[in-house]
Design a protein around this nucleic acid. Sequence first.
RNA 1: GGGCUGGUAGAUCAGCUCGGAAGAUCGCCGGUUUUGCAAACCGGAGGCCUCGGGUUCAAAUCCCGACCAGUCCA
Length: 854
Amino acid sequence: MEDREYDLAFFHRHGFHRRTCAGCGHAFWTLGEFDRCQEAPCRDYGLVGHPVFARPQSPREMRETFLSFFEGRGHTRLRRYPTIARWRNDVFFTQASIYDFQPWVTSGAIPPPANPLTISQPSLRFIDLEEVGRSGRHFTEFEMMAHHAFNRPDHEVYFKERTVELCHELLTSALGADPAAFTYKEEVWEGGGNLGPSLSVGAAGLEVATLVFMEYVRDGDALKPMPLTVVDTGYGLERFTWASQGTKTAYEAVFGREYDELRRTFAPREAAILIDHARAINFLLTDGVVPSNSKEGYFARLLLRRALRILQKTPEAPELLAILDRTGRELALDFPEVGAHRDDLRRVVEAEAEKFQEAIARARQTIRRQEDRVRATGGKVTSDDLLGWYDSLGVPPDLAVEELRAPPPIPEDFYAQVAARHENEAPASDYAETTEVLPEVPASVPPTEVLYYLDPYTVSFDAHVVFADGPFVVLDRTYFYPTGGGQVTDTGHLGDASVTDVERRGPHVFHRLDAPSTVHVGDRVRGRIDPVRRTQLMQHHTATHLLNGALREVLGPHVWQAGAYKAPEAARIDITHYRALSKEELHRVDRRVNEVVRADRPVKSYFESRSEAERRFGFTLYQGGAVPGKELRIVEVEGFDVEACGGTHCTHTSEVGAISVLDVERIQDGVVRLTFASGERALDLREEHDAILKEAARRLGVPVAKLPDGIDRLLAEVEEGRKRAKERRQEDLGATAERLAADPTATETVGGVVLVVASVDLDRNGLMELSRLLTKEPGRVAILAAERDGKGTLFVGSTAPGIAAQSVVDAAKAAFAGKGGGNPAAATAVGEPGAPLRAALHDARTAARRAADS
RNA sequence: GGGCUGGUAGAUCAGCUCGGAAGAUCGCCGGUUUUGCAAACCGGAGGCCUCGGGUUCAAAUCCCGACCAGUCCA
């Protein structure tokens, strides 16, 4: 990045000078007399006891100071976004305020909700988890205060000069800091293929803010200017609060009385971890994470288990729920949604605590057993075992050590070693976008007017072709619904050609025909949508919303849609929930959802400003993922369910027809999938299932109502038959054994050993069982031969101490080219097809006699 | 999304390295003993060794693949 990028008129106007930091080598701008930038490690922390700002402020006051400062300077104040970044597939959590606007707003695809804007965004970062409570300034949950501006070539809001001016005014006028206390360090920010200059604002050892100017796209080695430039700033609320108070650590300043209360029971580090985690958990659960073993759910589990472990180790510790409620109440003063649904939140936490106790109880047992085994063989438990147990059982090392009689030392770098174990794993990859490559559309082509939003019932319309390339046609207006929001595409006809797929990219809707199009730009064409398919898709989509509403009602507001798919044949919805659905719960959902269908409630679809919609309905609007933009399309089932959704919907619930849930499965920890059908399809399926039941009943010869009993009877009979066959076989074998024992040509006694030699017609298992019957007593040897499929099998069983079964078999192998082996008690060999089994039997008998004689 | 554990009797688990006749404990059933119960002792029933392929004369055991559960990491 060239120097001129940072050479701002603002700096010159106010008498800043540019220096190079003797510590890190970065250039910086300052009014002070520094030869180093004012950030650690280039300078020590100097704010303890010497606040940077004029007046101590609580987080609440500081947030308000910040937001109203920018509001007073032309910025629109936005409410926070969810901490779970459902609108992105590259990250789990909102880690900074700019995440709210990536990728669609920053790429220019969608206009920003306000411009310029200011926000204080609760953010989650797990990278410094181990530092929480240790460093005195790290948090997993923190608020990033920001002001953002999005500049288009035709509309420049503000960029570097104004940003730095605002920042400096905030620090010095609004917060009353000494103007000479700050350094603006020159850095380069890069991310997501974009980059630009940035200024890092330091004071008293602390980096208090970062001002990023996104203006380039990396194109190989060259830099291309971005069509949209973005002001991305970040001011840490917690750091600002700390800097205003100058307390020993940030935790005293930020957590205040809550921290003092916990300090009566816990060490500073533990108290800080508990509050920090409790805040993060409150946000996570409020925003719809259910603890689980993967994805975002894992982080909720991680925090909960870490907190539980601390409480477990402390005898007079309060309940986790009490701590969560205490922090939750505090947060609710600023974020009322965190205070809602506390009972449901408690149930989620209780279920999770229970799972942890179970896991630990299981693990304890395993650890004890494994130690016993290791010690029995003269070994000892090593720190490697501790690593293994943590990885596979989830046992924290300190807990494992409690359980062991001879514990190894816990390595200092335990968690680093855990990380090392996972180093070589394949990185998590974004699932590949399988969308077909659509042709480029010239900028002159006007955007498609999408009419399906306004009227889902029109299935025939006229439009003009504005673009055509190969099988793709773009119209000036269309009623065809393109694949999106989990709803598959409409099909139908454009003129005489079949439309097989419809996709939306940017402002254009592409109709894909089954053959290269013969239409030309300017042609007027008639579009006809397959009405049966469209109706079924509408029913399935509206049914999905109804089910979601019923599930939230029955199971609790922790239920969020975690995915959905609506095809004509069936639809499915994945929801977050902490255990499998019980029969009773499913029954209640089924009843409730069909009750809402029958009640014929109106389903309204309309556009509304984002802020108004959020104010009225809250974040649960974003069941299908949060959508940035000024306007949201709202689908509202009156008094029951409201979601931001772009799909085609029925206008009354009764149009959905019956809803049948076909299948419920737990697809992963914390996620339950319901597969269902509605409308005609539900009736078709019901008929099909009915026919299957009747046919099954007919074949069993019972009435449908007696089907389960009939199956039980059938199974019992099968079991009985199996048992009887087994018994008969035992009897037959027993009879054979008796016959052989009584047959002088088969049985002889040599040197005190009873030797039975016989050819029988049995399979391998039969030979074994017969041998077992013949050798129940000690001092017996059975030599049995059988032929199956032309191959001879020789089996020898022995309870005679001097006669090893496998040596008898070995002696006979040569005679029939046999392969096999065994142990002293039993041995088998199978010969080549057609090889003389009789000779082998003879050799075996000879060998056994000789062994018995000696 | 990836790694690691694990899946054997109703329950909890041995056995798996190194392939060769499926085990223990608890529970269950019956008996002895006891006024009765518990306990003790004796005896018994109970297994598609998760499923599907492969290797082998032979697989609970080795290899490959599914499925299920747990766990760690992103």
